[in-house]
Nucleic acid binder design. Sequence first.
DNA 1: CCACAATCTGACATCGATGTCAAATCGTTG
DNA 2: CAACGATTTGACATCGATGTCAGATTGTGG
Lengths: 338, 338
Amino acid sequence: MSIVTIKDVAAKAGVSPKTVSRVINGEAYVRPEVRELVQKVVAELDYRPNAFARSLSSSRSYLLGLFIDDPVSGYATDVQHGALIGCRQRSYHLVVEPVDLTAPDWEGQVRGSIAALRLDGAIVAPPICDEAALMAVFAESGLPTVLVAPSSAPPASGTVRMDDRRAAQEMTEYLLGLGHRRIGFVQGPISHSASARREEGFRKAMAAAGVTVDEDCIVRGDFSSRTGMELGERLLALPERPTAIFASNDDMALGVLITAMKHGIAVPERLSVCGFDDAPSSRAAWPQVTTVRQPKAEMAAAAVDILVNPQFRQKAGDEHAHLMLPHELILRGSTGPA
Amino acid sequence: MSIVTIKDVAAKAGVSPKTVSRVINGEAYVRPEVRELVQKVVAELDYRPNAFARSLSSSRSYLLGLFIDDPVSGYATDVQHGALIGCRQRSYHLVVEPVDLTAPDWEGQVRGSIAALRLDGAIVAPPICDEAALMAVFAESGLPTVLVAPSSAPPASGTVRMDDRRAAQEMTEYLLGLGHRRIGFVQGPISHSASARREEGFRKAMAAAGVTVDEDCIVRGDFSSRTGMELGERLLALPERPTAIFASNDDMALGVLITAMKHGIAVPERLSVCGFDDAPSSRAAWPQVTTVRQPKAEMAAAAVDILVNPQFRQKAGDEHAHLMLPHELILRGSTGPA
DNA sequence: CCACAATCTGACATCGATGTCAAATCGTTG
DNA sequence: CAACGATTTGACATCGATGTCAGATTGTGG
């Protein structure tokens, strides 16, 4: 038989199962010699506590849920990666649960995951972390929940985010520093309030530099590279063409880049383009797109920390943890002097 | 108290917990009226069986493990997506386990996941499904394991793959049909035997068409867009320049595309480029890259089916399931007549 | 040397489901 | 109507760990 139980260890070490349990869980009140002996036996037998039995008797499951809308997006991937790393470090496991809010029974599915798996905590990625209906389900279940980069601040045990406004401001300052004055800005969808903050940062930097923003240079897209292309078309056709275009995500920046290329407008010589997110597409393009690195993996890892940290777990519900992680400007080939 | 147990349901329905269990698991030998009554109560109380208790008493965990090398890659993402969908349908859950073969204790980590979680099955994605040492761990544990697109055929309960050779052959035939005769081929890394099969398909089609392959037109890359650029450089500098370049993955195709663009060689007018995989990068580029769609999600979903299917589970170890899923040529803007 | 607290240990109940098995009920058949 | 098998149900043990609590041991100060 290949399954080693706690009894086997106890028998071989000549102690009770409870004592083995104590050693495993690092509890106090075990004589050092006994502790060492048990640890030796555990190693010898390569004993692995059954996570199910453990979670059945204690109330912890050692499982965190990652709730994601579109698990195929690059964003989700990065978030998951960070969560995975965090879990690994804390010997937790991660259960990925796709949430399709258009499915008729999404609520039942989410409830099912929470109840059946007795999750210890949930990490909710954007954009669904902004869905009130979904958040209500979590709130009702009483499950400690951490939101990654939420747009607003719905009730939750914690949030982890970056400063979109400040990042966009810095990017704009960088463009201004390169001598650009006429700068196009491609907004994200209205529903995505983080992109509204990016616009704020843009406007703030422009105002601070004393440059008036021509509203013709502000266009709204939906984060797809297709609208990036269309809007690039529009911006580049303006009587007084911008010398730089700042798109509020990378896919749209890529669309702008493609449009410029089609029209034979050299980037970055005659047009600077920059995006936001540091998505894979920003690296795949040529020239590579200057962008803002969002600390996606770090945010997710921090979310795990918050959920697992016993200090936090105790006061969950009362106090909330809110973290702001640093971003980074990634300067690449798509931007240059005006 | 918000947690509903089987006892609550039993009490309210006036039957024993065991009978409720029978209804939940769709066992025979329950009077239709009783079955209906119990189902009604279950729905009323929104009862969710505790997955841990269930798996502790039965021997099933309703958990599948997805073992992945690099969870950030687009490939992994697609595979995971398919697995997730499959699990959802069968009311299983998916635990994602990153495997870092360079970590000193990777073996312990894998063993730990298998033993602690009592997984019902494992899905192993490439490239680690070709690592003998890893596969040995799975074999030893006796865990039903399905490999997704393995290069060779290590011992495993099942494999799900596509026909790389045939796909490459079809792509080559398509290029030949467009009138191309001098076709460059960018090989993948030697270790990646699927890419060897792609080369076979390429050569077979060329031979069948009576076109001799100039070995100068065959170059080896490592699947990165960087080598795609470098090798594109080399191919395009050839005294007699190829009219088409077939790269054995999309990233390299993208590299070739970028190089062509830098040299002002119009695609597809003066050069056709195609790749393999239908990675996101193939869509992000301009023109979009003609490629082969690998049924990644479908393969993963099929893997779930194999693992969950009781018919298979019974004979696991004896008979093996080997599936070959259909691919698809995705014709896009990067290819045209010679 | 005793009283008392601090430290250490294990017996036993428990978590929430399912497996086993025996008992109860029902319908057929000879 | 007795006898038998098929159907239906529940009592009870069990999975593998941890929580509780009481008892055993050790150490310390008076």
